[in-house]
């Protein structure tokens, strides 16, 4: 099973919010500026920055500034950990269910 560490906790907590999941989904299609994300979520920049901070601390996104424009990109490695957590458990329980179906004594 995947080893649990703080990165996983940060990522899962960051994703336990609809708006932040919207940001991740949007960034999955390519980079976006702060204004674009604020418009997408229909929130002001201060509120957006709170979410972006959380996502950055969880190592899910990276931000960079060009002139006065700040843009953000997804860090797939952050999601990889979560996917791994889900994949290992899905595969484990799938095998367990197979074993249960094959070996359950119903007499």
């Amino acid at each position: 099973m995947v080893k649990y560490d703080d990165g996983l906790d940060g990522a899962a907590t960051a994703l336990a919010h609809r708006g932040r999941r919207q940001i991740i989904s949007r960034l999955g299609a390519g980079s976006a500026t702060s204004s674009e994300l604020a418009e997408l979520l229909d929130i002001g920049l201060p509120a957006l920055h709170k979410h972006l901070d959380l996502l950055r601390r969880a190592s899910l996104i990276e931000s960079s500034k060009t002139g006065r424009t700040v843009s953000h990109v997804l860090r797939p490695a952050g999601l990889d950990q979560l996917a791994d957590w889900l994949l290992t458990r899905k595969s484990f329980w799938s095998n367990q269910f197979d074993a249960l179906a094959d070996h359950l004594e119903t007499s």
């Binding site: 649990y4 996983l8 906790d9 899962a12 907590t13 994703l15 336990a16 919010h17 609809r18 999941r21 991740i24 989904s25 999955g28 299609a29 997804l74 797939p76 999601l79 990889d80 979560l82 996917a83 957590w85 889900l86 899905k90």
Partner: peptide
């Protein structure tokens, strides 16, 4: 479920599994 907890109110959404896979696919 994992050991994480969230202080945010959580609304109903697609399963985390589908979400993460979709996001990875787009990436």
């Amino acid at each position: 479920t994992g050991p994480w907890t969230s202080a945010e109110p959580v609304d109903a959404y697609r399963q985390g599994w589908d979400f993460v896979l979709d996001a990875l696919e787009h990436t």
